[in-house]
């Protein structure tokens, strides 16, 4: 019983981090209808930047994230304006191919800068734990999860309470109605990309002390973030939180009761199963128009 609770706690903590890592993906899809296949590469690049701040300046990853996030946001805007927006104008089907090509470019660039050796940051909390009764809570996971909750709450604040957030909601729900009050969906799109990639950078910072990473880990992370947003329903932000928690628990259970090796297959299996059975996601109330035929 204690082992099960331990597993669940671990799964929920990591699930919170998964939610943070996937929020950007669902936000971009919700408003722009683009599946950003470079999500994993943005995560890994952010992890490397955090890693460099840690190794060269001794900046804690959780602090370093606040330096990396604006840089990544800016990079997101440049790539959006330079490549993704154009590709989408030319052919929406090819835009997704372009984002994947971008992922490979970013992977190559990270490999050229940081080399193929596995990297990870090791702040002093990375291998400590808090004990509550017989349950051990690893500090790294705990801090990462708290961090995820704080950042996600910040993002929720921006979306719920600011002009920009309301403009994002307006443009995603009703582009023509938004134009009539002076909100240009294209301009909002640029902001969304900036915010999404910046949020992803926070996820990358958490990744940097939770996992070892190499440049080509990115395709595993695309799979993971895709499965989170598909579980929760593409485009839904509350869905991402639910999807992250479900995936975190499912992975923890698998690695505890099946094998660690097979736990990496869980996200991909979930993608295939959910899309077969319930393509609108596990938590959506209504089927989306763009899903059902």
């Amino acid at each position: 019983m204690a082992a099960l609770i331990q597993t669940l706690v671990f799964g929920l903590l990591i699930g919170g981090v998964y939610a943070l890592m996937s929020t950007g993906l669902t936000l971009v899809f919700g408003v722009m209808k683009i599946v950003n296949m470079a999500q994993g590469a943005f995560l890994i690049l952010s992890a490397y930047l955090t890693y460099s701040l840690w190794t060269y300046a001794g900046i804690d990853p959780l602090i370093g994230a606040f330096i990396v996030a604006p840089v990544m946001g800016l990079l997101g805007v440049i790539l959006y304006k330079g490549i993704i927006e154009r590709a989408q104008r030319i052919d929406a089907g090819l835009a997704i191919v372009a984002t994947f090509a971008l992922a490979l470019i970013l992977e190559a660039v990270t490999a050229l800068i940081w080399g193929p050796e596995p990297a990870t940051t090791t702040p002093d909390y990375f291998n400590q734990a808090v004990h509550i009764g017989s349950i051990a809570i690893p500090k790294a996971q705990l801090y990462a999860c708290i961090f995820a909750v704080v950042i996600t709450a910040g993002l929720a604040f921006i979306i719920k309470r600011t002009w920009l957030g309301h403009a994002i909601t307006a443009a995603s729900e009703n582009p023509e109605g938004a134009r009539l009050i002076g909100v240009e969906p294209a301009r909002v799109g640029t902001w969304i990309f900036a915010i999404s990639i910046a949020t992803t950078a926070f996820g990358g910072a958490a990744l940097s002390f939770l996992y070892q990473f190499v440049p080509d880990s990115q395709d595993g992370w695309i799979g993971l973030t895709l499965s989170v947003v598909i579980l929760g329903g593409l485009g839904s932000i509350p869905g991402v939180v639910a999807g992250g928690l479900v995936l975190g628990v499912a992975e923890a259970l698998t690695s505890n009761y099946v094998s660690v090796q097979w736990s990496t297959a869980v996200p991909f299996i979930l993608i295939l199963v959910v899309l077969t059975v319930r393509p609108q996601g596990l938590f959506a109330l209504h089927s989306r128009e763009d899903v059902s035929s």
């Binding site: 309301h166 729900e173 023509e176 109605g177 009050i181």
Partner: peptide, 27 residues
């Protein structure tokens, strides 16, 4: 300012937020 034929509101925002969006260009 144009009031559109249908679906002019943003369903996810509150009434107050919707009305306030009318001032988006001035803020």
């Amino acid at each position: 300012v144009q009031v559109p034929q249908r679906h002019g509101l943003f369903a996810g925002l509150t009434v107050r937020q919707n009305v306030m969006m009318g001032a988006y260009v001035a803020r």
